[in-house]
């Protein structure tokens, strides 16, 4: 597989504060990556470093296996950071044509990309007259001008209204479906869960996890169970070898698995012991639950 970007022990210190701490991960072609972390966890600083606008303190990063200099590589990248930055006195088309000049691509695609983000009817309006949602969409159009190998988006839905968020997500989904590699930084779990196949979780500049979204924690899922005799249910489950921790919440037992087991197995086991269930549900943790579990784990360590 082709590696687009790799980070090796990348570190950034602002005075005494370590914003990014020995971060290493790599981005393979064709996947949709999410960088997930609470506000101030170092997501934007990390992107800033690989995009040549923030100076690294130590470590290094490589674009396209180090075959070209960073600013050459950036011409094959489409990126928007935080809020959209354009010349306020220029129209959408004028701004995009300028970006074409900088990237060294032809201007043919300006209208096509404006169409993708639904701004074709406002193409001759000055940038300063745009709403935040429109500015954000123009930024995406600008990032797409060179048909980039990778699209980097930093909090693309930040500050938008629900409709705007929906529009942006639709656009991202469309782009991802076209096979473009995407790196999306966000503090919104559901955003990452909906869009990304891989995730890098960072907290206070440190990497907690990187890999496929559905393998964040080694978990075989859990059962949610209800019965008339809850006490007996808890006793029986406690003796089952494949079941670990059991918690009770609002008259529902949650039993975490230590080994893989299907729902019918536990059902027949309990039935044999003379207990019939009124409710049984097998689930895997949502990204949010996994994320909280992961961040709690590190806090305890």
């Amino acid at each position: 597989m082709e590696t687009i970007l790799s980070l090796n022990n990348l570190t950034k210190k602002f005075g005494g504060l370590t914003a990014v701490d020995n971060l290493s991960f790599s981005i393979e072609k064709g996947n949709v990556y999410g960088i997930l972390g609470p506000n101030g966890s170092g997501k934007s600083t990390t992107l800033g470093m690989v995009l040549n606008v923030v100076n690294k303190t130590s470590g290094d990063f490589q674009w396209f296996d180090g075959k070209m200099s960073t600013h050459q590589a950036l011409k094959k990248v489409g990126a928007i950071i935080e809020h959209p930055n354009f010349y306020p006195y220029m129209t959408a088309v004028q701004n995009l044509k300028l970006v074409c000049k900088i990237k060294g691509t032809s201007k043919d695609k300006v209208l096509e990309k404006l169409e993708i983000v639904g701004l074709l009817d406002r193409k001759d309006s000055k940038f300063r007259t745009f709403s935040l949602g429109m500015k954000q969409r123009l930024a995406i159009a600008s990032a797409l001008l060179n048909d980039p190998e990778i699209l980097i988006l930093d909090e693309p839905t930040n500050g938008l209204d629900p409709q705007g968020i929906h529009q942006i997500r639709e656009i991202i989904r469309k782009i991802a479906a076209g096979g473009t590699t995407i790196l999306l930084a966000s503090h919104l779990l559901d955003e990452v869960e909906k869009v990304c196949s891989h995730v890098v979780i960072i907290r206070k500049g440190k990497k907690l996890y990187s890999g496929p979204v559905d393998e964040i924690i080694n978990s075989f899922g859990f059962f949610e169970l209800k019965a008339t005799d809850m006490q007996k249910l808890e006793e029986l489950l406690g003796t089952h070898p494949k079941i670990g921790k059991i918690t009770t919440k609002e008259e529902t037992l949650t039993a975490f698995l230590e080994e893989p087991m299907e729902a019918n197995e536990i059902n027949s086991y309990l039935f044999e012991k003379g207990l019939s269930l009124s409710y049984l549900n097998k689930r895997k943790e949502s990204l949010e639950e996994q994320f909280l579990q992961l961040t709690n784990q590190t806090e305890q360590n």
């Binding site: 040549n52 600013h71 950036l74 990126a79 950071i81 809020h83 930055n85 010349y87 900088i102």
Partner: peptide
């Protein structure tokens, strides 16, 4: 003040350029 310098660099202009 427009932060366009940031975008210029991200778009692939080097600082020297």
């Amino acid at each position: 003040s427009n932060r366009t310098i940031k975008q210029n660099l991200i778009d692939g202009l080097s600082k020297k350029e």
